[in-house]
Amino acid sequence: MVIAVVMAGGKGTRMKTDREKPLTLLSGKPVIQYVLEALKNSSIVDKIVVATSSQTPQTTLFVEDILVDNPSIGILDTPGSGYIEDLSYLLSQDDFKDEIIVTIASDLPLITGEIIDQVMEEYQKSSKPAMSVMVPVELFHEYNLQPSLVLGKVVPSGLNILRGKDTEQDEEVLVLDKIELALNINSPEDIICLEKLWGNPRR
C-alpha cells in the first residue's frame, strides 16, 4: 500500500501571521487543500494521512470537516516538535510498518497528481528503500525564491518516499527541474511569487 502523509504540524513562524500555515489562503482556498486534491488525483496513492499537532489545532478541525466525504483521508496527531521529530514518530507507528510512505509538505500549492505519480514511477525503478526528491538551486534563482536549505547544487523539495520502519534507510536522489516542487509557501514573498505565476491577485 502507498500511504501519503501530509506534514502539517509545524508553526510556520516565517509567515508572520496568526493563521496556521497549512490554512494560508491562496485564491480563497487553504494551501493544504491544494496538496490534498493533488494526492486524490494521483493514480498510485492508496491512502492519505494528515499529520497535525497541538501547534495546528485549526488545521486538525479543517481536516476533520472533510473526512465525512473523504474516507481515504485520516489524521495522525504528532508531537509537533519539528519535521524530523514528527517524521520519526510517524515511522514508529505500527500502522505504517513496511508500507511505502510518501511524505509531502502541506505548503506546496502547485503540486499535481501527475508529478506525484512521476516520482512514484521513478521510485519503483529504484532498488533503494527511500527516495529524496531535490530541485536544482538554479530554479530558485530563476524565480527569485529563497531556499530553506541548499545542499551543493540542489535544494530538498517537500516530497520524499520511504518505507515504514524506524531505521535509517539508503536513499536514491531524484532531481527534478520543476517549480511545482520548489515553491513552498514559507513567507509572504513566496505568495507574491505564486501570484505572479498564477497571474491573478490574492483574494
Rank of each mutant, 00 (worst) to 15 (best):
T167D: 11
R163D: 06
I192Y: 10
E168G: 13
C193L: 04
R163W: 04
V175I: 15
V175Q: 13
P188Q: 12
C193T: 09
K178T: 03
T167V: 14
L183R: 00
D170F: 08
T167M: 13
R163S: 09
D177S: 04
I191P: 02
I191H: 05
D170H: 12
D170E: 15
L183V: 04
I179T: 04
N184M: 09
I192N: 08
E168H: 09
I185L: 10
E180M: 01
L183G: 01
I179S: 04
R163N: 04
L181P: 02
D177R: 02
D166M: 11
D177N: 07
A182W: 10
L194G: 03
V173I: 14
P188C: 13
E171D: 09
D170P: 01
E195V: 11
E195A: 09
I179C: 00
D170T: 04
T167A: 14
I191E: 07
P188A: 12
L174A: 07
E195T: 08
K178L: 03
L159H: 06
L162I: 10
E172G: 02
D190M: 12
V175A: 08
E189P: 04
A182E: 06
L162H: 15
I179M: 01
V175H: 09
G164V: 09
L162T: 11
Q169A: 09
E172S: 05
D170G: 03
L174K: 02
E172C: 08
I191S: 04
L194I: 09
I191W: 15
I161W: 10
D190N: 03
L194K: 05
N184W: 05
N186I: 10
I179R: 00
D190L: 11
L194M: 05
E171K: 09
K178H: 08
C193N: 07
K178S: 03
L162Q: 10
I179N: 01
L159N: 00
P188W: 09
Q169G: 10
I192K: 10
T167Y: 13
D190G: 06
D166I: 07
L176F: 04
K178F: 12
N160D: 06
S187E: 09
L174D: 00
E171G: 09
I192L: 15
L181C: 03
D170Y: 15
D190F: 14
I192P: 01
N160L: 02
R163Y: 11
K196E: 12
N186M: 10
E195Q: 13
D170C: 00
V173T: 09
L181Q: 05
L162P: 02
E172T: 13
I191T: 07
E172L: 14
S187K: 12
L176K: 02
I179G: 00
K165G: 12
E168P: 07
